[in-house]
Amino acid sequence: MSSNESNKYFDLHTSGIGYLNRIREVTPEKGTPFLSVTISALHGSVDDVHYAHFECPVSGKKAQQVVRQLTPAVEGKLKVLVGFTLSDLSAESFIHKHGDKAGQTGVGLKARLLRIWWAKVDGQPFFKEQESAA
């Protein structure tokens, strides 16, 4: 649980490993523009990997810096694998508008990207968060 002087919150954090995709600046009609990404998180057996796709505004300051540094690699279609922490997971239903699933209901997962612990580009180390002295 986290708190400040007047409010207390129950934090729900999700950690995982996944591929970074679709880095973009989102400019809402009302509100402040923000950095957003899609993370294709890996789960299941290493012999039969499954993916969960998360649409994420990038909230953490350090995460924003790392994502901006990784943008050229993602835009260059390189494989960018990251260790991450998400917060405020939610699901949102939608209707597919195109393709084989047109007219069917789908579910999108959303969360805030708080932290990137490490990143690899095409299997090569790119970033690793430094351990902080406690």
Rank of each mutant, 00 (worst) to 15 (best):
Trp117Gln: 13
Ser40Phe: 10
His43Asn: 13
Leu86Asp: 12
Cys56Met: 07
Leu70Ala: 05
Gly106Gln: 14
Lys101Trp: 06
Ser40Tyr: 08
Thr105Pro: 14
Gln124Lys: 08
Gln104Met: 13
Gly44Asp: 04
Glu92Lys: 14
Leu89Arg: 05
Thr38Asp: 09
Gln65Ser: 06
Ile39Met: 03
Trp118Asn: 15
Gln65Trp: 02
Val67Trp: 06
Ser36Phe: 02
Val66Asp: 04
Gln104Cys: 10
Glu75Ala: 07
Leu86Ala: 14
His53Lys: 12
Pro72Phe: 01
His50Thr: 07
Thr85Tyr: 07
Leu42Ile: 05
Gln65Thr: 11
Leu113Ala: 08
Ser59His: 13
Ala91Pro: 05
Lys62His: 08
Asp88Gln: 07
Val80Trp: 12
Arg112Gly: 03
Ile39Leu: 15
Lys62Ile: 08
Leu89Ser: 07
Gln64Asn: 03
Pro125Ala: 00
Arg115Trp: 09
Gly99Thr: 14
Leu113Pro: 01
Leu35Glu: 13
His50Pro: 00
Val74Asn: 11
Ser40Thr: 01
His98Ala: 10
Val74Cys: 02
Lys120Ile: 07
Val66Ser: 04
Lys97Gly: 12
Asp48Thr: 06
Leu86Thr: 11
Lys97Glu: 15
Pro57Phe: 01
Gln124Glu: 14
Phe84Glu: 09
Leu114Met: 13
Gly123Pro: 06
Ala111Ile: 15
Gln69Thr: 13
Glu75Trp: 09
Ser45His: 12
Ser40Val: 02
Ile39Cys: 03
Asp47Phe: 10
Trp117Glu: 10
Lys120Glu: 04
Lys77Ser: 09
Thr85Met: 14
Gln104Lys: 12
Gly44Glu: 03
Trp118Arg: 08
Gln104Asn: 05
Val107Tyr: 10
Leu109Ser: 05
Lys120Asp: 04
Leu81Met: 14
Ser45Gly: 07
Ile39Gly: 01
Gly76Glu: 13
Asp88Met: 04
Leu81Cys: 12
Trp117Arg: 08
Pro72Ile: 04
Asp88Val: 14
Gly60Cys: 09
Arg112Trp: 03
Ile95Pro: 10
Val67Ser: 08
Val58His: 01
Val80Ala: 15
Lys77Leu: 11
Val58Ser: 00
Pro125Glu: 00
Gln65Leu: 02
Lys62Trp: 14
Val37Lys: 00
Phe94Trp: 15
Ile39Ala: 02
Thr71Cys: 00
Thr105Phe: 04
Gln104Pro: 01
Phe84Asp: 07
Arg115Glu: 03
Thr85Trp: 07
Leu113Gly: 01
Leu35Thr: 13
Thr38Val: 15
Pro125Met: 00
Thr38Ser: 08
Gly76Asp: 10
His53Cys: 12
Gly106Lys: 12
Val107Gly: 08
Cys56Tyr: 05
Ala119Ile: 02
Glu55Cys: 03
Leu35Trp: 13
Val121Arg: 04
Gln124Gly: 00
Lys62Met: 06
Cys56Pro: 15
Gln69Leu: 08
Gln104Trp: 11
